[in-house]
Simulated assay, not measured.
Amino acid sequence: MKVHGLLFAGLAAMAVAGSAQAQDKTLAIVVKGLDNPFFEQINKGCQKWNGENKDSGYTCYYTGPASSTDEVGEVQIVEDLLNRPDVKAIAISPSNAPLMARMLRKQAPKIPIMTIDADLSADDAELRETYLGTDNYQMGVKFAEHLMKLKPDGGTVCLQLGNVAADNINQRAAGTRDTLSGEKGTDRLTGQGGWTEIDGCPVFTNDQADLANQQMADTFTANPDLSAFMLIGGWAQFAPQAYAQVTDQVMEKLKSKDLVIVAGDTLPPQMEALKNGRSHVQVGQRPFEMGYRAPDVMIELIEGKTVDPIIYTGLDECTQENVDGCIGG
């Protein structure tokens, strides 16, 4: 009887714990793709929040499509979450901003929706309560400022972008072009400020590291006098072995700065690339901070508190000169 009593007590305790856990309200973070190491930093921030807020009654839930190329899959995940009674708020990094906006407009969610890392377009901004993440236009400005320091006389440049409909990447490209040209609203560099985009560029990676590296290799081969290659996102560097092979073919040019590489993000393999002379500048976002702060922002929205419509998380500017002390992540 004593054994049975202990067994019953143990099962009862497990049931209570399970019931308490089941009653937790879900704060969902939906990213563009689980295959991108950048978003894993957001997940780590989310999980740290969970570890520090076990008795809050809320759980931070990180999810997304398996592949960053699955735009429709991301929209479907958000739509499914909207139909779950335990989900009380959602933070979305939209891969295809117009596609996500159409679904949100149709569904008219009754729970708070915010964006994280990537925003909806200005025309659709009313569909979310706030945006938490990088000032992407300013990130593009920083790309350009560093490039102009390295190449004050201008030259030829190729911009590598991600998804055609990703608002965050398009904002970075706009900041880059406007700053290099000295003119707002520059759609393409055709000599303004001494800079010209080469034929065949920009190139679009669709968030695929293998494609990004192939594009770089092809561009270097076809344009031996190229002055600068700009990774508006870090895609190629997320596959460090392939990126090393691609940059091996131009290492002498990188050392002499005849060819300059400016890139986005500062994850560990990217900082190694910078230390090894395989890039000259890394402008970093703060994805861990995004994931860590998002649950608190969602709770504030749930509670009806006033939240700024835009919350920027800052940038880190890492160069070959300050790489040993520059904070990556």
Rank of each mutant, 00 (worst) to 15 (best):
G284V: 01
T266A: 15
M290R: 03
R293L: 13
M290T: 02
R293T: 10
V283F: 01
Q285T: 09
M290H: 05
L267Q: 13
N276F: 00
Y292P: 02
Q282K: 10
P295N: 02
D296C: 04
Q285K: 13
P269K: 08
Q285W: 02
V281Q: 02
L274T: 08
P295C: 01
D296Y: 01
E289W: 06
P269Q: 04
E289C: 05
L274M: 06
S279K: 09
D296L: 03
D296H: 02
A273D: 07
D296G: 13
P268D: 12
L267V: 15
L267C: 10
V281G: 05
R278Y: 07
K275N: 05
E272S: 13
Y292E: 10
Q270I: 13
R286T: 11
P295M: 07
P295R: 06
K275V: 01
F288R: 09
Q282L: 15
T266V: 13
Q270D: 05
P287F: 06
M290E: 15
L267Y: 09
A273G: 12
Y292R: 09
P287S: 03
N276P: 00
G277E: 03
K275A: 12
L267N: 06
N276K: 15
D265Q: 11
F288A: 02
M271R: 06
P295I: 00
P295G: 08
L267T: 13
R286V: 09
A294F: 08
E272N: 12
G277F: 07
R293H: 06
F288Y: 15
R278M: 11
N276H: 11
Q282F: 11
D296R: 10
V283H: 00
E272G: 02
V281M: 12
P268V: 09
Q282A: 15
R286P: 01
G284N: 03
Y292H: 10
L267G: 07
N276S: 12
Q282W: 06
E289H: 08
P269T: 03
K275R: 14
A273T: 00
R286N: 14
Q282N: 14
G277A: 10
M271D: 01
F288M: 04
V283P: 00
G291H: 07
M271P: 00
H280F: 10
A294V: 08
P268L: 09
P287D: 03
Q285A: 08
Q285I: 00
V281F: 12
L267K: 05
R293A: 11
H280S: 06
G291A: 11
S279N: 14
Q270E: 15
P287N: 03
M271I: 14
L274W: 06
A273K: 05
P295E: 03
Q285L: 03
Y292T: 00
P287T: 08
V283D: 04
L267M: 14
R278C: 00
L274D: 05
Y292F: 14
N276R: 14
P269D: 07
P268W: 09
R293C: 00
N276T: 07
V283L: 06
H280E: 12
P269I: 04
R286A: 10
D265M: 11
F288S: 05
E289T: 14
R278T: 06
H280R: 08
L267S: 12
P269Y: 04
Q282S: 14
E289F: 09
P287C: 07
K275Q: 11
R278A: 08
F288K: 09
Q270F: 04
V281C: 10
